[in-house]
Amino acid sequence: MLRPIRRAYQFVMDHPIKDGQCIHQRYLIKELLGAGSYGIVYLCEDLQTQDCKVVKQLRPSKRKMKKELQLFEKEKSLIQKLDHPHMPKFYEDFTENGNLFFVMSFIEGDNLDEAIFSKQISFHEQEALQFVSKLLSLVEYLHQRNIYHLDLRIPNIIIQKNEPYVIDFGLAKEVIDHEVAKEMKLQDFYDFGDILLYLLYTTYPAKKKKALPWTEELSLQQETVYLLKRLLQITSPYTTIEDIGIDFDKAMKANE
């Protein structure tokens, strides 16, 4: 009985702010970008600078829940530590009518999910390797700062002029403990394999009589197969980004 009551409460409390409303006497809401487990995200016009910003709001129904409040504050704290042109930039936080918000830069472009499934963008083997290799350098930047994204899915990668941008740090963690960090590295590395497979399948004919393993469906250079198997932890997993980078270089050279 408790769950339906909670859902009803959330339905009543968590209505997104309507387009055209202004918050903090500065941010004019243009559209709802999305809603997650603890946050609501808006695309806004900054009336002071006339450019677009992203404003994230803690769901009103979660304001008194310790776990969700901590997640919101943790995400805000991590974004404040980022200083990379291919990641969100933090601007400010504020409270209005008891609601918590923070503001970050808007990264224009399609996420990979939209690019692949709505706009039918395709990547040949070399193009897929080059794109994910660039993504590798972004994650290396994070790992050097003890930050682990832990949610490197195609909706969280923006593509702009064939360059990757990383967004959505809602599940990211900052970890100093070496042993704990090892497991988180493996998760980010595994996500590289998933993303690379998605890109490689964009040139695969959709209609086939039998569903086969990717090793049989995709015609790839052996260097790419070796790379994917290690990223996906089918064979001995990678433990360092440096080793992944070396094998990306080998796979790209094999495709020249």
Rank of each mutant, 00 (worst) to 15 (best):
Q221E: 14
F106M: 02
L196A: 07
L112P: 01
D177G: 00
Q187W: 04
A128W: 09
H143R: 03
H124Y: 05
Y9W: 12
G39Q: 11
N97H: 14
K74Q: 14
R230V: 03
R145Y: 02
I17K: 13
N97Y: 11
K18Q: 15
L129W: 04
Q21M: 13
R7T: 10
S77R: 08
F101L: 08
L129C: 06
D243G: 01
D51H: 13
Q80A: 08
Y165N: 06
S133P: 00
M184D: 06
S133K: 10
R3V: 14
E256R: 14
A35N: 13
D19Y: 08
V103C: 05
Q25I: 03
E125K: 01
I158G: 07
A254D: 09
N99W: 05
C22V: 15
I159K: 10
Y238I: 00
M13A: 15
T49K: 09
F90S: 04
K81H: 05
D151E: 06
L58P: 03
H143K: 02
K62H: 15
V166G: 03
E108C: 04
Q144L: 06
N99E: 13
N162G: 01
I241C: 00
D249C: 08
L152Q: 07
I107C: 08
A254W: 07
Q126Y: 08
E125A: 06
Q126V: 05
S133F: 12
I176D: 13
A115E: 06
L2M: 11
E179Y: 09
P4F: 12
Y190T: 11
K173T: 06
R6I: 15
L186K: 15
E114C: 10
D46F: 01
H124G: 05
I116N: 08
L33T: 05
I23G: 08
W214N: 11
Y38V: 12
I147P: 02
L142F: 02
E216V: 13
D110A: 07
F106Q: 03
K64N: 15
R3Y: 14
H149G: 02
L129F: 05
P60G: 13
L112W: 02
V180Q: 13
L2H: 13
D14E: 12
Q233E: 10
K173L: 12
Q57H: 03
D188F: 07
I116D: 07
K64T: 15
N97A: 14
Y238L: 00
F189S: 05
F123V: 01
L28T: 09
T240P: 00
K208A: 11
D249M: 12
E217M: 14
F72P: 00
F131P: 02
